[in-house]
Design a protein around this nucleic acid. Sequence first.
DNA 1: GGGCGCACGC
DNA 2: GACGTACGTGCGCCCA
Length: 865
Amino acid sequence: MNKLILIDGNSIAFRAFYALPLLSNQSGLHTNALFGYARLLEKIIEDEEPTHFLVAFDAGKSTFRHQAYKEYKGGRQSTPPELGEQFAPIRKLIDAYGIKRYEVSEYEADDIMGTLSRMGDEEGFKTIIITGDKDLTQLASEHTDVYFTKKGISDIEVYTPDHVNEVYGLKPLQIIDLKGLMGDKSDNIPGVPGVGEKTALKLLHAYGSVEGVYENIDAVGGKKLKENLTENKDTALMSKELATIYREVPFDFDLDSLKFDKDNNEKHAIFKEFEFNSLLENVDAEAAEEKEAFTDELTDDLSALGKNISLHLEVHEDNYLFNAPEYVAVTDGSKTFISRTEDVDTDELLKVLNHSDTVNSYDIKRQIALLSHLGIQFTDFTSDIMLASFLLDPSKKIIGVSETVQDYGFSIDSDDFVYGKGRNKKTPTEEEMISFLNDKVMAVHQSLPLVKEKLEKDEMLELWQDLEMPLSKVLADMELRGITVDVSRLKSMQEDIDVRLKEIESHIYELAGEEFNINSPKQLGVILFEKLALPVIKKTKTGYSTAVDVLEALLNKHDIIQYLLDYRTLSKLQSTYVVGLQNEIRDDSRIHTRFNQTLAQTGRLSSVEPNLQNIPIRIEEGRKIRRAFVSKDDDHVLLALDYSQIELRVLATITGDVTMTEAFSSDTDIHTKTAMEVFGVEHDEVTSLMRRNAKAVNFGIVYGISDYGLSQNLHITRKEAKAFIDNYLDSFPEVKQFMSDVVQDAKRDGYVKTLMNRRRYIPDIQSRNFNARSFAERTAMNSPIQGSAADIIKRAMVKYAEDEAAQKFNAELLLQIHDELIFDVPKDEIEAFIPVIQNIMEHALELKVPLKVDYGYGKDWYEVK
DNA sequence: GGGCGCACGC
DNA sequence: GACGTACGTGCGCCCA
């Protein structure tokens, strides 16, 4: 039987809001009404199993009732902002459930529901109306129940005609007469003065309706009551009319279009956004029950698979470099091979891979490394779902196959669910793994066409196929190769620093008058700002700030400060680098970092375990760490090549700024040139201070910092910083134009893009919050610059790997540090190799200005400067 | 185990 | 005037 659910959208929102304490999610949105709503929807869907569903909202401020009586619904308290902000998300929530919603000016939700319930009655539907408004009970009928939410929203009172009779001794339609006589405070319906519920019911029991009361007015007892009734006859009749739900709203849709399918929804994503963790678990559990989604044929014969396959090697640990795969799964979309790794014939597997037309996967870099554990050298993957997903929206956190394929409508168990987390960690049985991996590899396989379609639509197919995928293979090589580290150099540094730290420590204790944990900002704060009573410069959320800039401001106030600064520098070196790096050296005397290709919003890479993109260089003390990174042997050297001012060259290209383009074309020092323009002086008049200021402004442009950030860098006021930026923009009008254009683009499209079409979505560009919007604007301005620079060096890496001449050399790419590449090169090839790689880098992408690559080489990373 | 303060690079 | 201000990684501390 058809079952139609009609929800009174606004009424339930209010009920849910007042029923629950004020919750909010991490982005600061209040979510209590939303949560109550979601819980109600869950309950209704579970208990009632509706076939048709609609949520009706009040839309118009002026309905036909207002025209009849302008005070209608007057005097209502205004909606609290904490609830107001939830109305739009509530609509989003309803959409995510796949539930239709409707609102129309002129009519109220009551009228929409009244009309639909009439239509339902006529067509033999069972209809349930859910509301927090008793007026609606007038709609109860043989086929229509009215669910009234009492205190809270989960406590429901069901109004059938019988129950209306039990409660009021009336027929449902007489509710209108009841309101006509007694009025309704909440809707500002007046009714008859002096007539409350008791009197009204008495009158209706005797005379049936408002009209009946007046037909028998002489029989009405009580002088005052009769007088009131007589004097307010018009009001009573009007009140009745106002309370009458209109059941002939003209719709441009029929009941059929309200069809509801509980399995067709996007609940998972929306629960995540609102942080409804308890509901999320339900969704995951449901998904687990339905895990027979892919009931496909398992085969133990790899060679039985077709030519278009997806491969997935599974190991739970993050670090694929040092953990061998436990299972191998391969599918062609209809037959799937799954086996424990030790039972796989690796020769057979390699043969199958080599003879396939296409090999699809999720995270091919990981797969390449895992294959190498099996002695299989295979890199010829044709697609990578993970990389695609990242390109489609880099703000989406890449977690795993399950979370990614969710976007393409596949619901499979998450890794966290299968392997457990924290104290619930578990080792799944082989049977569980086979079922899990079958889902996983099938979901990866079946996502591919959808992924490609989206990439095509967003014009990123090329970026994916010709840049990110080949880059993944280059990065796999680099990770597997590692960089040689001379542990003895770190050991001797460690001993040296240990001695010096102890020495500094004793000075600090002496000056403080007691021993304490210098590494604890909390304890240090007490010493400095309470015991030594130094002035508090800055506070953090949790107490006194003891950051470098604070300490520097206190330098001349107390002798302890210099020791603290030295201690900080040395202990950072010791813990993170000298000791930290030793812990990462493997049996091959090398460090194997991993590059994350799907994290940084701008398209940059990042590096973990360890991070080799932040090895000290600025301070001599720290720079010595680089002595530990050495060439593979005495016949090799390390070669470092870095792009000079790549971001500003990109900026010159994107904006077409004439002055800047000219400066780069003639290889002028860009910071000096900037100073000349900003300060309006000749070349020889640029002081070192001017150049430093200009350099900081350029830095700000590249990284998208605010006037505040610039003021902090230069130790000037925000006003002065703003003046610098304004001067800069006036000096480079094309840059100024670009900055305003790109913000407009972001507003229009919702995203900005790089020279190679990499996107970054900027939703906050529309924000009413000044800070959020300002930040979004700077992001819009900066992302194309930094992102294009990332595109360029990535392209250089790929071109290098694909360049026949370059590959003839025995050079090995070791590291990428945003604008720099580090190679290990045979000594006898170095002179010949440099121009080849330099040329590749400088022509990775043709800009309007030349790209310039500087280089240095030596026996270790310190020497390459 | 997670949040925070801090510091390193680009 | 708004009130927190490039990104990312990793360390030690501290609290649960």
